[in-house]
């Protein structure tokens, strides 16, 4: 029984790691070696692909652009969602349930539906091809998600905490920042993680809302694939580098990840 359980987990993790290993394997090969045939590990180990990426501004600017809008989006989403989630978790007000569903329904909106209108909207606002445009556009699905997760965590904090603070003479903003936010620090961390994650992995909107100046790494990669033939080694190295922010972020929230995935509602 115990052995079977371990086997299930090990096999599953191996299955997850194989494609990642293949990506890393290719990133250390030259394109010629990749196209030359099948091999388990690099015969002529090379770091050329990585060196190209770190020395060519069109490549490394892609990473900078992506990280810029992802961080902007995370900050905007979390800071706007905090008061809203508090309202949903503590008060009843006119239309609250409908509003909550309407917010969530935007998490369900297929980005493909919005691509074209978004391009028009952000062009009209003169924001096209800026990181801010992508950051704002990603709010479409990240803000509702942030409200949803934070509301779960906030509902876990007893109401007496609020009442005691108000009796002690705290004003709402003072109470919120000084007392309430530290209490749900884990929740804020998890929410930031989710916003980071969904903004980092999205590509349809990010690609179509930018052209030159703010081109994200995901778009740089597709363009390289089509113009310079198939530079597979370079593509693999660029892909491998996109894993790093994810790994760093997971490491920070690893203790809370299970609870966070349940959106604080277990």
């Amino acid at each position: 029984m115990r052995g079977a359980k371990i086997a299930v987990v090990v096999v599953y993790i191996l299955f997850l790691m194989l494609p990642i290993y293949w990506l890393l394997n290719m990133s250390f090969k030259t394109t010629n070696e990749i196209l030359g045939g099948f091999s388990w590990y690099p015969q002529e180990f090379t770091l050329d692909s990585y060196i190209t990426i770190f020395t060519d501004p069109t490549w490394y600017n892609g990473y900078i652009n992506s990280l810029t809008y992802v961080l902007m989006n995370t900050v905007i989403s979390v800071s706007l969602a905090l008061p809203a989630a508090y309202a949903f978790s503590r008060y009843r007000f006119m239309g609250d349930k409908h509003l909550f569903f309407w917010l969530l329904s935007n998490r369900m909106a297929p980005p493909a539906v919005f691509v074209l209108p978004f391009v028009e909207l952000y062009s009209a606002m003169q924001l096209f091809d800026t990181p801010l445009a992508v950051a704002l556009a990603h709010c479409l699905f990240n803000v509702p998600l942030a409200v949803w997760i934070l509301e779960g965590f906030m509902s876990g904090v007893p109401r007496e905490v609020d009442e005691t603070a108000y009796i002690d003479g705290y004003s709402f903003p003072h109470f919120f920042v000084k007392i309430f936010m530290p209490l749900i620090a884990a929740g804020i961390g998890v929410t930031a993680f989710f916003c980071f994650m969904f903004s980092w992995v999205e590509m349809l909107l990010a690609k179509n809302l930018t052209s030159v100046a703010a081109k994200p790494i995901v778009a740089v990669m597709t363009r390289t694939a089509s113009t310079a033939g198939y530079e597979l080694g370079l593509l693999a190295a660029a892909g491998a580098l996109t894993l790093i922010p994810g790994v760093i972020v997971i490491w920070f929230v690893r203790k809370h990840i299970a609870k966070g995935f349940a959106l604080g509602r277990v």
Partner: peptide
């Protein structure tokens, strides 16, 4: 376990596609 399992969730979606595109190729993909 949790960190390893969460890894695929944090890979940009087009990188996932590109990765599998190559991983599944009959001549050079595993």
């Amino acid at each position: 376990c949790l960190v390893l399992m969460a890894l695929p969730l944090l890979i940009p979606w087009n990188v996932v596609g590109a990765m599998w595109n190559i991983f599944a190729l009959p001549d050079i993909g595993l």
